[in-house]
Design a protein around this nucleic acid. Sequence first.
DNA 1: TCTAGTATTGGAAACGTTTCCGGAAAACCG
DNA 2: CGGTTTTCCGGAAACGTTTCCAATACTAGA
Lengths: 351, 351
Amino acid sequence: MIGIKRLAKHLNMSISTVSRALNDRPDSSEATRKRVREAATKLGYVPNQSGRNLRSGTTGTIGFMMKTGPEIIGQGHTHFFMNVLDGVQEVLLRHKLDLVALLCASTEDADDYLRRVVSRSVVDGLIISNTRRVDPRISFLADRKVPFVGFGRSTTDVGQPWIDIDFETIAAESINRLVAHGHKRIAISLPHDDINLGHVFHENARNALGSHGLTLDPQYIYRSLPSETGGYEIAQKIVVTKIRPTAIALSNESSVIGLYRGLMEHGILPGRDIAVIGLNSPNSRYLSPTLTGFHLSLHDLGVALGEALLASMPQYADAYPLGIVRKVWPVTLVPGESDALNFIKPKSLIA
Amino acid sequence: MIGIKRLAKHLNMSISTVSRALNDRPDSSEATRKRVREAATKLGYVPNQSGRNLRSGTTGTIGFMMKTGPEIIGQGHTHFFMNVLDGVQEVLLRHKLDLVALLCASTEDADDYLRRVVSRSVVDGLIISNTRRVDPRISFLADRKVPFVGFGRSTTDVGQPWIDIDFETIAAESINRLVAHGHKRIAISLPHDDINLGHVFHENARNALGSHGLTLDPQYIYRSLPSETGGYEIAQKIVVTKIRPTAIALSNESSVIGLYRGLMEHGILPGRDIAVIGLNSPNSRYLSPTLTGFHLSLHDLGVALGEALLASMPQYADAYPLGIVRKVWPVTLVPGESDALNFIKPKSLIA
DNA sequence: TCTAGTATTGGAAACGTTTCCGGAAAACCG
DNA sequence: CGGTTTTCCGGAAACGTTTCCAATACTAGA
């Protein structure tokens, strides 16, 4: 391992000159920059991150916090995160920043873990997802002045930047479309009550129903994990509902797989016996009947998330003069067969 | 942010004494340790990781490398990883080490990324998964003397520790069982040819068939991604096979979901029209007919992986006198309905 | 040619921690 | 009680980098 000292000696320069050249400081000549760069690659010099961190107080890494263990938020969600993170990483790379996933063990409290990570100062900035309705992480990070961006909103508001999927549109358009198709008994799926998006979805679905003179029957609100398994459980619940809903609007992308499976085991075919609107994903691509679902560009969302974070970091703010980014990420409806118009031929099973 | 200096001044001690006390060095008295600890928590002192790193050359973090992006190895695999990582984290926490997932963007070459991570020395040790048949990462890490453990074997052998799932048993027992049930046209699923486990599975399946006087028909080898989608694609391929296999043994835990879906769309019912043996997972729990599959304790595997890594790190070797760990992780078969004994009533569809 | 300004450089301090080393005090032993 | 060992402590150097500051060399203007 060669350090800047030996590199400097080898070049017959002072270490300060070498450092300046390596970092493209304005007060270093192009000639020396070139010489230094060449020698550096020749000798295989790579700056020691710890030394750099110590001096500058930054680490050059951005963290994305997630929990490990069996009861993670939803298995299928991974595709989701992996695409978003890919976009984030793309932006960060441009600034030589690195993205790591901070893995909080299932045995450890998430808030404790965050505290530990922050005080060890292993990252310069953070992305937090699965934002809760009231989220202590937000106030904590604001308090510690750690730059962060929420992937999701929260009622805990410290003026932080966030980007959130447009669940308003998803909920409202789903309902409007289903009502237009003649449905009256419309169900929705919601995540755990803590999660903020559930409230957004709930409220907008209720309002949309209200605008058509309908109400949201509490028995048609199915709470479940946003996973295949969660969707399967919804199907089980639907089957035992006395007066079954004729349509359901889902609030996540994973559960539709399990929902289809569960419904079909009982001879209930989406698009014929029940209308389903959900979110598209690679896994929903092969569903039959094809899914009527909302599409969103996850990679681009990740890019936006990365840019929002950089905009909130003083060092990079001038490259991204965006101010505090608070953006609802657009979705577009892709019609399929699962909510077919020629519905309303209720088979016996719609008791 | 308070440093060790201010802490020392506040205690009227030298910083060396404080440092020793905080690290429970033998040459510090219990009395001072107590005083220091108390003052540290009272003042909210947390050691600066960068300073520590710089001095000691270690970072206190272990990395698990994975790729982000759309074409990741398999979405369902995540549950898999999340449980393994949970076990790893559990072990590491005992030694105040932290686990992070190193996210390699889809646009970046994995080997380049590894090189970058290592030279920036952001981790003290690594776990690499999806080990390939010939894996340059292994020789690179050995060359750089970075402690690591393979989650999976490879023909690239530098004496590194590894832990791998017992695909020998999975392949052989699957075959033996299917043959015992009277099957002769037995198919297997394999991942990309690069991946090492594919070769293990292939070879052992072939040998098991051979021991029964059967051969592995090349047309019954279905290559696919280890994902739901991959399983769905296998079903499509099965359907268009001239003389269809009567049984299939899967080499991953995710594809069975898509396989079931794809088969059932064509009226082919696992356990009646085709026998299926796979790997169990939370998502396979709700399959109907229930899956005959292999179970393995992922969390414990993670623990073993963590211990194997620590055993290979000089600093921790004395706590884990295991030498170089090379272990095939055991699996147990959980019988279900998908390979039911009362099979062999070939419907018309088994052309 | 001299001066003022600019471009580039080297020296040295600083970031926060650990650890080596010498020394002082205490404990032990005969 | 003298000497030897043990226990504990403080001073200072070191890890590798960045950056402030002063100094030098060069350029341009008069």
